[in-house]
Nucleic acid binder design. Structure first.
Lengths: 127, 127
DNA sequence: CGCATGCGCTAGGTAAACCTAGCGCATGAC
DNA sequence: GTCATGCGCTAGGTTTACCTAGCGCATGCG
């Protein structure tokens, strides 16, 4: 993924996380202490925010700065190299999940990552 | 360490790493593909470089982007996530998942852990 | 209906990130 | 001595990050 594409992807990522958190653009901008027009422009890929701003947005969304930088293509690829195992391990170690829930999540995760790309987009697995 | 102090500290860090690698300012700037006056100003704390520039300098010095961001105070001190955050961050960091898939997995995860996605962020429980 | 409040966004302004041109100094070769 | 090449840096210019003021639209209330 090229850097330019990463920045556009970052805007989409921020928007999706914001919507996931059920926040309006103005609410997130206020918590992150940036102007809402600027956040709108960042989400649409018009501007590349500084690392400071990325960190503020990450904190406001309660996600780690690291995952934000990774989304922006700002971490080394080797730093990102373990996430496949990371998701499965994190699920297995989570004390809040039952065994059945863990199996389900891992099955879904594997369904997403093992199928051909044409089957992935916007599709939930059966069941 | 405050952010302003971190930026000055970053400049000192870059200079010391550069000298350690026995590179002149112009040599490092050329490898990192930035102008040498600007690198000089960054080293003296006059300007705060963007994350892109930080990454280029880190690569040119053969050090990890992550340690560069940490030196600049741009990483969370609480990188040790709680288990709940571990799953969500692992999902977000996984380069094999599309944004939609990440959203889906996180929604399912939150449904399993009774973490309502529709709540306002300020009223989320500790976790 | 008017008014208040919320939404995301445009337009123009300011500040700073980053650049190029070129300076003064140091060193080495002839 | 001159000339070439290296050094780090200043000054002014360009680009872009980020801001404020305010728009149009939607919704709810009296």
């Amino acid at each position: 993924m090229k850097n330019d594409d990463a920045w556009k992807g970052l805007g989409d990522f921020i928007r999706s996380q914001r919507e996931l958190a059920n926040l309006s653009l103005r609410q997130l901008a206020e918590v992150a202490k940036i102007s809402n027009p600027y956040l709108s422009q960042v989400e649409r890929g018009i501007y590349k925010p500084s690392a400071d701003v990325l960190k503020s947005i990450a904190n406001a969304l309660h996600i780690s700065a690291e995952s934000m930088y990774a989304q922006a293509g700002l971490l080394d690829e080797e730093t990102e190299a373990t996430p496949g195992h990371g998701v499965e391990n994190a699920v297995r170690l989570d004390p809040r999940l039952t065994t059945d829930q863990k199996e389900t999540l891992i099955r879904i995760y594997r369904g997403f990552t093992d199928r051909p790309a044409s089957r992935q987009i916007n599709s939930l697995p059966e069941g």
